[in-house]
């Protein structure tokens, strides 16, 4: 099995539209490699959830203080958020993804999120 990695630049979508890279569950041939390969494109979606700027982040304050204690005196502020990696063979629609980010992965009262689309291609003979 040969695994090829396509590395398109991540597309950030926040909070609304930007072009979604067109990686559907597609198979095609890499004929220029001399042999036909079936390529299945996986889409990785990264969701970054951060406390809103207006919300006090006591965890971030504690980490900042610890950083100062270990000698990083120049650190001004730290905010602690979450990083989620979702993997799809069949990516959901943009609307659906926004919906799950808003309703489940983040709480809009206290958090902001952003979505990054990546993709990896797995090819096999």
């Amino acid at each position: 099995m040969l695994v090829a990695r396509l590395e398109p630049r991540p597309t950030e979508l926040h909070p609304t539209n930007a072009a979604l890279p067109r990686f559907d569950r597609t198979t095609f041939h890499l004929s220029n490699l001399g042999c036909p390969l079936m390529v299945c494109v996986l889409m990785k979606v990264h969701v970054i959830v951060m406390p809103k700027q207006s919300v006090l982040d006591p965890q971030g304050v504690a980490v900042r203080n610890a950083l100062k204690d270990v000698g990083l005196e120049t650190v001004e502020s730290v905010r602690v958020g979450k990083f989620l990696e979702l993997e799809f063979k069949t990516p959901p629609g943009e609307m659906k993804l926004e919906e799950i980010c808003r309703d489940l992965l983040s709480n809009p009262v206290i958090e902001d999120y952003r979505i990054q689309y990546h993709s990896t291609a797995e090819a096999s003979e």
Binding site: V55, L56, P58, Q59, A62, N107, V109, I110
Partner: peptide, 17 residues
Amino acid sequence: LCEAGLLPGALIRNQSL
């Protein structure tokens, strides 16, 4: 109840941690 949207607002980590 807050997460379900039946009540407004949210409950976050205690300020004292």
